[in-house]
Design a protein around this nucleic acid. Structure first.
Lengths: 220, 220
DNA sequence: CGTGAAATACCGCAAATACGGTATTGAATC
DNA sequence: GATTCAATACCGTATTTGCGGTATTTCACG
């Protein structure tokens, strides 16, 4: 490795995008001297950081604020990941609302910290993300968990009977009544009656509605 | 507060469920003396802990292993949360596979740590969970994130045209062709043709299959 | 022991669907 | 300027569906 600074040969490049000048200075000086991290780029606007990506080698990690003038941090994260997929983005913000968290993670962020976090958590997070982890503040993780369990849904299998679930499964798989009957070794008429009952329970009148409810409410 | 131990008045009760006797001793002695934590119950089996829940005041936090003899930690977590919803369960295990993580979190775990975590991370996690957070190991969080983005899906809206998506949306909502036509102010025949094309693109032959693909692949 | 719910089976028919065609228009791409 | 493609529209028909009935068996629960 043709690098004179032997003790820094593994130094990872870090950029900071943060509009508040004071906090920007604080955070970059905090991380500047940490061993293994090299931080000498700090931007006040997403656009500036993106422009820099065109001319300079992409950093390993970007600490990204969300509430920025001009392009917001979520859009910025998306753009960064388009230009340089290897660069990991850690969100560092004061926003705790579910939508922001959700959008940021979907935009490709690898971590989510709060500005209220103690400095050592931020430093730890840097290390974790370089090891391939996704450092997420415990308060944020709690909200993620809630979203998570919500996404996987209020499992309510008790609404439908075992048999009804099997038939609903067939509908989800795109089978006709006849095919479901064959698969479950039941009469066509039996399937017919069951589907009738399923529709009544789910309060729908079409296959589409039933399948949508099945998947959205995780009834299978 | 009628508690003589003034300096311990806020002490939180912690239980440990861990079958490996050595690790159990290590972890509980590690946490025994931490300020604000009171840990004097450690079980080798889930069943024992559940039985204790019947006769003793429920703890604030339980550190739960997953690979246990008899009832596994996931089932145990579910049971604990049924009996004492206020008790927070932190999973502490060596298992890193997605399914275990997923199931544990769905069962109501508030945190997920790895036994390879340094002791101070475990101690920090205890504190975080008591503050209402969900401490999740960064490696685990990374997997959660992956599941998360997978759940929200590989959005591939380019497969279908805008119009086709609108019609598919109608099918998901359980509308008939006629109703979709009315909603979009199009002819019935137009809807018919579009649905034909949608089926071809999605390689399905029924409404159920189309709706299922739409929701699973997040085509809307 | 009765009662009810689940699973099973059957009938009939109007409505909706799936799918094979063909065809025009406008916008985009080449 | 030609071509591709999305969006629109129409036709015919075999098949499937949705839903109104009725009815039997089985099994759990009070």
């Amino acid at each position: 490795m043709p690098n004179a600074r032997a003790h820094l040969e593994e130094a990872k490049e870090l950029w900071v995008v943060e509009d508040d000048a004071l906090y920007r200075k604080t955070i970059s000086s905090l991380l500047h001297d940490v061993e293994g991290i090299h931080c000498d780029h700090a931007f006040g606007r997403c656009e500036d950081a993106l422009r820099a990506l065109d001319t300079e080698p992409a950093p390993d990690v970007i600490l990204m604020d969300l509430g920025l003038p001009g392009m917001n941090g979520i859009e910025g994260t998306r753009k960064v990941r388009e230009i340089s997929p290897a660069t990991r983005v850690i969100i560092l913000t004061i926003h705790e609302d579910n939508e922001k968290i959700f959008d940021a993670l979907c935009a490709g962020a690898s971590g989510y910290l709060l500005k209220s976090s103690p400095p050592d958590e931020i430093e730890r997070a840097m290390m974790e993300v370089l090891k391939g982890g996704a450092p997420i503040n415990a308060q944020i993780a709690r909200k993620m968990l809630a979203m998570f369990t919500h996404l996987t849904g209020p499992r309510n299998p008790s609404l439908l009977t075992q048999r009804e679930r099997e038939i609903l499964k067939g509908m989800v798989d795109g089978l006709t009544k006849k095919q479901i009957a064959e698969q479950l070794i039941l009469s066509y008429h039996t399937i017919d009656t069951h589907i009738k009952n399923i529709y009544a329970k789910l309060q729908v009148h079409t296959r589409g509605g039933a399948v949508a409810k099945a998947l959205n409410d995780h009834l299978l």
